[in-house]
């Protein structure tokens, strides 16, 4: 029964990773860049919710919406100012280092604005935990909401990408930017839209993550961000179902590793999984193998 408890915790954490990984994977699929600042957008989103709930007393749901809007704006601005000028740069290193710079900028701005003190995030979920098997198995409200939200986002995004015009445009841009432009697709707009969706998802992830793990500091987003990237790579970068599968697996591996192997080595285990995956199947579980053309 304890195993089931761990499994549910793992699924709940994994759902958070999956939502973050969706942002990574979409941006990577389209802009072909690793957005290092994605994890820090989660942190910014969580701070916005924290302050709108505590300082302004706004309803949790409305706070999340505000946070999503602000994070979307932030994501689009970052893309416009820092990433777009470097899109056709001769070295792919340039945009990666810039992304690291943006990540640092967000962290240190948060450090100056909100101080390094840990803030205790109050849960945005108001559902009582469910007790099963005479209280041996407890499923927290946060876990239920997180898993449910993850599934909704996943289904919604899949429909969006496959059924709408904007989604099809995204697919086209990720296949071939030049050809997409010739077909009359607004490439810059489509990439900006991707960043907007990714950042809005980051805000949701921030709310869910901090409801379960309530310690909020300017560095809160870094580790989950990196682990979510691991999840995206695990599932196959660029693939939406891959991000979901990868996220859930990483979450379960982390929680089980913490429970049965060593709580201090849990992060090391997750990263070891990444290295093994990349060694065995560099394209991930659902990734496509792309041949390089000269």
């Amino acid at each position: 029964m304890t195993f089931l408890n761990y499994l549910i915790n793992g699924l709940s954490l994994g759902s958070v990773y999956a939502i973050i990984a969706l942002g990574y994977t979409m941006v990577y699929g389209i802009a072909k860049m690793l957005n290092f600042a994605h994890g820090d957008i989660i942190m910014v989103g969580a701070y916005i919710i924290y302050y709108s709930m505590t300082s302004f007393g706004i309803d949790p749901i409305l706070s999340i919406v505000i946070s999503m809007v602000l994070c979307t704006v932030l994501g689009v601005v970052i893309e416009r100012v820092a990433y777009r000028p470097l899109r056709n740069a001769s070295s792919s290193l340039a945009v990666l280092i810039t992304a690291i710079g943006v990540s640092y900028l967000l962290q240190n701005t948060a450090l100056l604005m909100f101080s390094a003190n840990t803030k205790t995030f109050s849960s945005v979920v108001a559902i009582d935990p469910i007790k099963l098997f005479d209280g041996q198995l407890t499923i927290s409200g946060e876990a239920i909401v997180t898993i449910a939200v993850c599934i909704v986002i996943m289904v919604g995004l899949t429909l969006f990408v496959n059924k709408t015009k904007a989604g099809q445009a995204m697919q086209a841009v990720s296949e071939d930017k030049g050809a997409a432009q010739l077909m009359g697709i607004n490439v810059n707009g489509t990439i900006a839209l991707t960043f907007a969706i990714g950042s809005a998802l980051a805000a949701v992830a921030g709310a869910l993550m901090c409801s379960t793990y309530p310690n909020l500091t300017p560095y809160t987003g870094t580790m989950p961000g990196i682990k979510a990237f691991v999840a995206a790579v695990f599932g196959g970068i660029g693939s939406i179902p891959g991000a979901m599968i990868g996220g859930l697996l990483i979450g379960i591996i982390e929680i089980l590793g913490k429970a049965y192997i060593s709580s201090q080595l849990a992060d090391a285990i997750v990263f070891a999984v990444l290295i093994i995956v990349l060694l065995v199947k560099p394209t991930g579980i659902l990734g496509k193998n792309i041949q390089e053309k000269v």
């Binding site: 990666l96 790579v233 090391a268 560099p282």
Partner: peptide, 29 residues
Amino acid sequence: GIPVLRLKGDYLAIVTLAFGEIIKNICNV
């Protein structure tokens, strides 16, 4: 370096990052 042979760019960056964190974690325990 062995994974490096199969990876490039962003993947390599993330693998080296992961490796550094693993080392730090192990040294800590």
